[in-house]
Amino acid sequence: MIEVKKEPRILAQQVSFSHRLARISGLQWLLLIIPLGYIMILMVFSMADFFKLSLFNEDGFTLEYFRHIFSTDIYLKVLWVTLKIALLVTFFSLIVAYPLAYMLVRTTSKLWKKIILASVLIPFWISLLVRTFAWSILLRKNGVINMILMEMGIIDQPLELIYNTTGVVIAMTHILLPYMVLSLYSVMEGIDQKLLLAAQSMGARPWKAFTQVFLPLSIPGVLSGSLLVFVMGIGYFITPALLGGSKTTMISMLIESNINTTLNWHLASALALVLFMATLILLFIALLLTGKNPVLKELE
């Protein structure tokens, strides 16, 4: 005789609603599919589309657009300017953000912490367009910065701070700064402050303790912040479009004009793909750089 094991009878009322929901098989998948689908549709279809547009035209497969990009001086120059601006912005935002983030973790004064966080975060909450216009007012020929410098007698002629690389780099550094500060801060906060005391007790002067202990341990933050700022910077549009002159065209502006003005979507896609590949290569290099250090390995 085969004995049929009876299911323990549980009254429906005893099982809570969420328990009953959890019993529906496949429900968790459904919950996953909604966000996943959203990402996949956007990612796969738009990516596939611009891959296709850059490599195919009415006559079929072609490398014409890439050939065009790499054989035309102006495109190469734009690519170079884009890389240069993104690198400069990354560099300057690191220089500015590192001391800020360091202060943020090291200061014991709550007031200072608030002041620094506010000065970093408040601009972050203001519209990008507004901030860019604000910079155009500050930087222009008769703007605040030039006025002050001239009043103080530091310069005779107003500096060319706008419609060139300088203006774009200044404004973009400020706009992307919060990403750098927060990336650095999140890593620095995880560094045990006692390590610095330990180093000092062994005879390290504060500067030595900083360079030999704190700095190496903060490198993961430097890398992640730099990558974030660089990747965001390389595809930036509004700020260079408003503050850059004719000589400081960035690749995103070229893509925009190909789509809106010359209506050459194939070329625009090819440019986007070049930008994408450049970003990937840099990410790959950064990953290689982080390979050796055990602290960095943990982050991966």
Binding site: D192, L195, A199, S201, M202, V213, P216, N293, P294, V295
Partner: peptide, 12 residues
């Protein structure tokens, strides 16, 4: 010389 509570060894 000082021995700290959580050792404070340099992780790197």
């Amino acid at each position: 010389g000082m021995l700290f509570q959580n050792y404070a060894l340099f992780p790197h």
